[in-house]
Each structure stands twice: as structure tokens, then as C-alpha cells.
């Protein structure tokens, strides 16, 4: 992966890295991708991908409301709250 592709990918992953970090990541990513290239050694023509192993189809949930966890306890973990709203900075 060239550096600009790496930077695009870092951006997509919502990360922000300085040049040193990018450089060190570049080495590690390159090593892994090289390793991944081994996969081209096996013929997968006509093979269906496995996205769910052993999972049976058609699990459905009845449409009846239930509260198992107090919503307030979820808000307790929020770094910043305004009344009941989760607040984040947005300087325009």
C-alpha cells in the first residue's frame, strides 16, 4: 500500500496520525499485506464465501417493547451531558 492510500485509509478509519506514526504503521501494514498475498496461492474459483458459519436462518424477535436496562444508567457513562442530551463541541 503506498503512503497516500495508507493516509486515505487512516482517514476513513477516523484516525489521525503524525508522520512518524504513519511511517511505523506503513511497515507493519506492508508486512501484513505481504502475508495476506499468500492467499492468492489457493484456487477459490466458484467457492461461496462463508459469512456466517453454523448460523441458522430466520431468527426473529417479537415486536413488544421491553426495558431491561435503565436508560439513565446509559447516560451516566456520557462524558458530557446537557439535561438528557449527550453534548459534543461544535464550534462553527
Amino acid at each position: 500500500m503506498d503512503t497516500s492510500e495508507l493516509k486515505t485509509t487512516i482517514d476513513m478509519a477516523m484516525l489521525e496520525l503524525d508522520e512518524t506514526q504513519v511511517a511505523s504503521l506503513e511497515g507493519a501494514v506492508g508486512q501484513m499485506l505481504e502475508y495476506f498475498a499468500l492467499m492468492s496461492g489457493i484456487d477459490v474459483e466458484g467457492v461461496e464465501p462463508t459469512t456466517h458459519a453454523l448460523v441458522t436462518a430466520n431468527r426473529l424477535r417479537p415486536d413488544s417493547p421491553r426495558t431491561d436496562v435503565d436508560p439513565d444508567s446509559l447516560l451516566e457513562n456520557a462524558p458530557d451531558l446537557e439535561d438528557r442530551l449527550v453534548a459534543i463541541p461544535n464550534v462553527l
Binding site: 485509509t9 487512516i10 478509519a13 484516525l15 489521525e16 511505523s24 504503521l25 501494514v29 501484513m32 499485506l33
Partner: peptide
């Protein structure tokens, strides 16, 4: 910033690799 500050190197590597 939250993600860059709080994730370790190995996590960042796998996230970037996975994104790619």
C-alpha cells in the same frame, strides 16, 4: 482525537488493515 489518543498501536494497525 479520541480514537487516536485512546487506541494502542496494535489496535490501530488492525483497524487500518481492516478498513483497507
Amino acid at each position: 482525537q479520541a480514537r487516536s489518543e485512546a487506541f494502542g498501536d496494535e489496535v490501530k494497525l488492525r483497524i487500518v488493515l481492516g478498513t483497507y
